[in-house]
Amino acid sequence: MQEEVNMNTGGISGQEPINPNVVRFKEFMKKFLRNKSALIGAIMILILFMIAIIGPMLTDVSPNAQDLTNRLATPNADNWFGTDHLGRDIFTRIVHGMSITLRVGFFSVLIGMSVGVTLGVISGYYGKWVDTIIMRFMDILLAFPGILLALAVVSVLGGSLNNVIISVAVFSIPVFARISRGSTLEVRQLEYIEAVKALGASDLRIISLHVLPNILSPIIVQATLNIATSVLTASGLSFLGMGAQPPTPEWGAMLSDGRNYMWDAPHVATIPGLAIVVVVLAFNIFGDGLRDALDPKTKN
């Protein structure tokens, strides 16, 4: 109440309306901070980022430095996570792999989201044949189950980290297109969009100033959860040998190496997998919390 009064009197004319975005953001922050899982997820993600950025500066050996006299060592004081079949320090490799994992997760979702949301908004806003064509195309992409679409793309482009990012992005386009189309359809029917239209605003202006801000929350939630899926898919591709090529310290590839030494040195496969679980878990927890905080239907 106090805040409202302040904002009203703070305006130049004394009648300036409260910015609805500010109110909404405050409401969101209140819910967000009350939501334990969103907070825990956010803290986890922050720590992961710090490891990715600062970690490599703190490790003194190269992630690819081999020590063939010290192969497959179990975790000990010198090698916290042990060493792999070439005597490389697994801890160092995990730390260096963090930025790869986060980069793949972020960029693939960023690309997939940009393309998907653009298509979805166009589809929902213009409707008719534009909608039909775009959404049919999305149906076609969705017809390839699970990892298969990414696999098909990567098999054509060839295995490399960048191609993994592209293929995982392609894989997440239809999800974003569907969500943003649905939300755009809802928003488009609102009266104020009609009003803005009547005032002569261009489509581009309506979409970027009035439609996009209103469909942002489901997209943000989806993007967060999608980073989790993308990390899983990307590590799967690398595990299959279609992603990062040796000696890149990519976790899926490390896991695949460890597979051959499961009898003598189970930690080589176990540890990279655990690292993947921690990252995916962080984004899933954060995404779940965000959804609860942003979804108006959730009761407190």
Binding site: L255, P266, T270, G273, V280
Partner: peptide, 21 residues
């Protein structure tokens, strides 16, 4: 949530480690 966050190929390898080996 944990089950959702596990790469299934890793789970498979872990099961092999525990229950087969």
């Amino acid at each position: 949530l944990f089950g959702l966050s596990m790469p299934n190929f890793w789970l498979g390898l872990m099961l092999i480690q525990w229950l087969v080996i």
